[in-house]
Design a protein around this nucleic acid. Structure first.
Length: 417
DNA sequence: TCTGGGGTCCTAGGACCC
DNA sequence: TCTGGGGTCCTAGGACCC
């Protein structure tokens, strides 16, 4: 038995915490660069603001209806997420953090599952102030279905427990195929073409070969999960990433190579830091940059990648990344976005037994550790390589509606009178 | 004027080997 | 007309998630 605990309109809820006067007002949060809507409260949904809508298309509507608009403030959201997950770890035997705003809990062996759900919900609301919805069922996919209903139904009080097959079937009949976890737009359309409209229809559909052919192995697994058979395992340990990427759209178009390289230097710095935090070394570095895909001008997609000897040293990775830009850069294009990816990971514990390395690599390692420590204590970006530049005005993102870092900066604490 | 960022998994098909 | 067969490994691209 699994519970899925999912924060309601998480980013918006975080912003509301520090602005209680927004409690019943519509709120939206924008993606990086104030590009599009990535979180909406129910009030904003009812105004017809779609998820993922480009902000410029709904800006007028927001102004007219008095919607509170925020630029994304990820350090705030991460901090609050950690508090929510911390509470879950205290209350539940086994927890798998699935994303910034949701987690599965394994409730096998828990006697009163529904009351535990209600208790969790009220503890999180009281201690952290973030409302959550909880769905409980025998598989992850069914827990997702239950969670959906918990958020939609008024009388559920935020918790839905699908304790027997009768309840499961009722829930599945109320779930359109496009709302099933793992069924996206393309797959939903294919199911509808087969005459399958609800999750119940899909569960009952009995043509294994066809499902496999159209939806691959994953489609079969989702079907099994709807039938109550577990296919998606529970990962208690926090798993390491297999690749780490950092990319951004620019606030304004970039026309010169040095600004592009500077931006990529910053992305590499960020990605390499995250990689060291999970104690990995990378053996592959890739970089990319692209022109504005929404503009009818001629497009160019810059891409380069290279294999390197395993390292976590920002300087070595940086050199390769900047060389790749030099090799693939083309003059005369209007670049709008760039990024870098590190992959081909191995464990940093393997570094010490590699006698073929240059002898200074251990010292390099120490240098990186020292930099990470200083940045952790003094704030990200306190120390970085010269290649990252000092003046980021040529490519920095726009963030015109940013809330203060209430929880991670002494200068931005909330004041009460 | 203005359209995010960061991941995972699966499969087909090519390269390569004997 | 006609050009082995079978296996593994790797990668690109699609689809999906939040």
């Amino acid at each position: 038995m699994y519970a899925l605990i999912d924060c309601n309109s998480f980013y918006c809820s975080c912003e509301r915490l520090f602005r209680p006067e927004l409690k019943h007002r519509p709120v939206v949060v924008l993606s990086n660069n104030d590009g599009c809507i990535i979180s909406r409260t129910d009030e904003a949904k009812r105004l017809g603001i779609p998820m993922g809508a480009p902000f410029f298309k709904v800006k007028d509507l927001c102004r007219k209806k008095g919607v509170a608009v925020f630029s994304a403030n990820f350090s705030l959201y991460t901090d609050l997420s950690n508090r929510v997950m911390g509470t879950l770890y205290e209350q539940c035997p086994k927890v798998e953090v699935y994303s910034i705003d949701e987690a599965f809990a394994d409730l096998s062996g828990v006697a009163h599952k529904e009351s535990l759900g209600r208790e969790l919900r009220s503890i999180i609301l009281k201690n952290i102030g973030v409302p959550v919805g909880i769905g409980i069922a025998s598989t992850k996919v069914l827990a997702k279905v239950a969670n959906h209903l918990a958020k939609k139904s008024q009388k559920a009080g935020g918790v839905v427990y699908l304790s027997d097959q009768r309840l499961v079937d009722i829930a599945l009949k109320r779930t359109p195929v496009e709302d099933i976890w793992g069924i996206g737009r393309k797959s939903a359309q294919k199911l509808i073409n087969l005459g399958l409209k609800t999750a119940f229809d899909f569960k009952e559909y009995d043509n294994e070969k066809l499902i496999k052919r159209i939806f691959t192995k994953v489609g079969l697994q989702i079907q099994e999960e709807l039938r109550g058979i577990n296919c998606f395992s529970f990962a208690k340990e926090l798993e390491k990433k297999e690749s780490i990427m950092c990319s951004r759209s620019f606030g304004k178009s970039v026309y010169d190579k040095s600004a592009l390289k500077e931006s990529v230097a910053n992305y590499i710095t960020n990605a390499a830091g995250k990689m060291r935090a999970q104690e990995s070394l990378c053996t592959r570095v890739s970089v990319f940059a692209r022109t504005n895909r929404f503009k009818a001008t001629e497009q160019y997609y810059l891409y380069g990648e290279r294999e390197i000897a395993a390292t976590s040293d920002t300087r070595k990775i940086m050199k390769v990344a900047l060389d790749l830009i030099d090799e693939h850069y083309r003059e005369g294009y209007e670049y709008k976005k760039a990024g870098a990816r590190l992959s081909g990971f191995c464990l940093s514990s393997e570094l010490q037994i590699d006698f073929l390395r240059e002898e200074d690599s251990l010292a390099d390692n120490k240098l990186m550790q020292a930099i990470d420590l200083i940045n952790k204590k003094k704030g990200e970006g306190s120390i970085k390589l010269g290649a990252c530049g000092l003046d980021d005005s040529a490519w920095k993102m726009n963030r015109n509606y940013k809330s203060p870092r209430y929880l991670s900066s002494w200068n931005e604490l909330k004041e009460f009178k």
